[in-house]
């Protein structure tokens, strides 16, 4: 399969079942909602060391938020519900509670077969030292915690669902600037897809990994088959003209969401085409035995599985 001169490999991305949740952060304006969301989703690129993978899904208009203020929706993913709950609580406490004018609300209430309620502000209320106030409206419980800028308001719980993490594709280009330009175009397009985040810096990861290492202590190490500087000395996956490879990792609330994002992202990268140095699109997998979800690139791009 070749799109605009870009070869789409006959391979698949291998993804895993994760637990995901959405939180809606509102503030006096988008600047502060974004500031809070950026803090909350900081250091959340990979579950390997960050606990969660998190990112900003999109900005919300005042008409879309529970309290009628500008907001941002944030998605968080973890390998287990216990980790997700712990990370949500600490990130809420250190990044949202602390950020001026913010309030936090549940982002998942319906639309999924199995929704587990997990604590959002339930334990943060104790910061109020007895002065916290509970209010129930429309069947939901909210907490008002007195803080120095006024009142911090948060919903008691949010919804957690079974989600999918680790969807990905690789962009192989003739130069580093060209690979990055294609990634930027892909991310820009993928940001418009709901229910997904690309958790790495700017949505792009340059240090793709393989399972295992020559060092016993490491469970993963650099993906030497895709390292352009090792073309001559390792079992390379790269043809001579490839000088740079970058990966986009996608976490989504469902496998269909990841499919959609993958399709949109690859299409945007391919639009630059071979004339801009984009040569191949590939994907990362572990032979198909580890992850429950396989995203076959050619199927997705031919629209069969979209």
């Amino acid at each position: 399969m070749i799109i605009n001169g870009v070869t789409i490999d006959d391979t698949f991305a291998e993804a895993f079942g994760m637990r995901g949740t959405r939180v809606i952060i509102t503030a006096q304006n988008h600047k502060w909602a974004n500031t809070a969301a950026a803090a909350m989703t900081g250091f959340a690129t990979s579950v390997i060391a960050c606990g969660v993978e998190a990112g900003i899904e999109r900005e919300l208009d005042p008409s879309e938020t529970p309290d009628g203020r500008p907001g941002v929706s944030v998605l968080l993913f973890a390998m287990s519900s216990a980790v997700l709950m712990k990370q949500l609580e600490t990130r809420m406490g250190q990044c949202i509670l602390t950020c001026p004018t913010t309030a936090a609300f549940s982002g998942i209430d319906e639309g999924y077969p199995e929704i587990t309620r997990i604590n959002l502000g339930k334990n943060l209320r104790f910061f109020g030292d007895g002065f916290q106030i509970s209010k129930q409206f429309g069947g939901k419980r909210y907490w008002r915690v007195p803080v120095m800028d006024g009142e911090f308001m948060t919903e008691e719980t949010t919804g957690m669902i079974r989600a999918v993490g680790g969807g990905n594709f690789l962009i192989l280009a003739e130069s580093q600037p060209q690979a990055l330009a294609a990634c930027e175009a892909a991310i820009e397009a993928m940001k418009k897809v709901p229910n997904v985040i690309m958790p790495f810096p700017g949505g792009v990861v340059r240090s793709g990994s393989k399972v295992g290492s020559k060092y016993k202590a490491l469970i993963a190490s650099t993906n030497d088959a895709f390292c352009p500087t090792l073309k001559g000395i390792t079992k390379t996956d790269l043809s001579p003209e490839i000088e740079s490879v970058m990966e986009i990792v996608i976490d989504g609330l469902s496998d269909a969401d990841i499919r959609k994002a993958t399709r949109v992202g690859i299409a945007a990268a391919c639009e630059l085409g071979a004339s801009n140095g984009i040569k191949r699109i590939s994907a990362g997998n572990y032979g198909g035995k580890l992850g429950q979800f396989h995203f076959k690139l050619r199927e997705i791009m031919s629209g069969e599985a979209a």
Binding site: P66, D67, G68, R69, A103, K135, F137, G138, Y142, R144, G150, E151, M153
Partner: peptide
């Protein structure tokens, strides 16, 4: 005197 965000939420409900 205060501007209380929860009131917006309450009146919306």
């Amino acid at each position: 005197s205060h501007t209380l965000p929860f009131l917006s939420l309450m009146f919306k409900s």
